[in-house]
Design a protein around this nucleic acid. Structure first.
Lengths: 146, 146
DNA sequence: ATAAACCCTTAAGTAGGCTCTAGGGTCAAG
DNA sequence: CTTGACCCTAGAGCCTACTTAAGGGTTTAT
């Protein structure tokens, strides 16, 4: 059933990116086409497309291609040691994601204050920047990252 | 009260970055020191530090310096037109942030499946990648961004 | 009064992530 | 059987976001 294949141009359009980028991702070992046509055209499967979508979304939230490659490479093996590593790695990554979400919520709140203050009451038009909407001045204090 | 000033090295340490980057942010018009000492040393205020923290957090969730500059530059003026623009811009940015949060939740779920499958039951060790943990294959379909 | 640890500027260099160019096959339509 | 829209490779070029280098003042402790 799921044996539909896409040419590079189709996939690029579907994903909202372009062929050069897809070829670049291939050289970077991120998204390969499952097979090639007789004439050498890349033919991408649904799975390949999934990989690409995942990559593009992960990129949008600030992961580097290197990190994304690791994420996409995550796989459980029976080897206990590897398994421990996977558990450690995913745990760390999950915390990282939670921190990102928290940051986004803060930025969102700041923007919402601004959005609502705007043209609503209209009194306090001065002194109304994105930073002044953050009640707590320590909101964005540095919290150990890497 | 809030008149504490920091030298570039202090601020860099506080923020977990380095002096070169701070100087770079200055040339890029992102974070300026409120004043200079007699000998030309940059002296950063608490507010400057806030700007920097905001910038670093926004960067972590995938905003470019250009976008961050716009965010930091957001300010309401009495001019109605500008105000409309601000409302439009903040609205768009808020949607963008919500999309990012949704993406992060998805990635987080995938990682959590992997994290728990790992060494837990231990039966389904094969075929367990980050993509196979995403029940719905359309989870990461392309949804207009840009 | 000198050494260590700061700070300054200008300018060049680097890494990551594409993007474009040149030169050339492939394929479906008319 | 040719035109237009695809596809291919290799390699150069480009933008963003730093990072390093070179040459030189300032401050604080001893």
């Amino acid at each position: 059933m799921n044996d539909k294949l896409y040419q590079i141009g189709q996939l690029a359009k579907m994903a909202g990116t372009n062929v050069d980028t897809l070829r670049y991702y291939e050289t970077a070992g991120l998204v390969n086409a499952t097979r090639r046509s007789a004439s050498g055209y890349r033919l991408y499967s649904e799975q390949d497309a999934q990989r690409l979508y995942f990559l593009l979304h992960a990129k949008k939230v600030g992961f580097s291609l290197k990190e994304i490659k690791q994420l996409l490479g995550l796989r459980l093996h029976k080897d206990e040691h590897t398994c421990e590593e996977v558990k450690h790695y995913t745990g760390a990554k999950i915390s990282e994601i939670e921190a990102k979400i928290a940051d986004l919520e803060k930025i969102k709140q700041a923007l919402e204050s601004l959005h609502m203050a705007c043209c609503g009451g209209g009194e306090s038009a001065e002194n109304c920047s994105i930073l002044s909407t953050l009640e707590d001045p320590d909101t964005f204090k540095h919290t150990s990252d890497k």
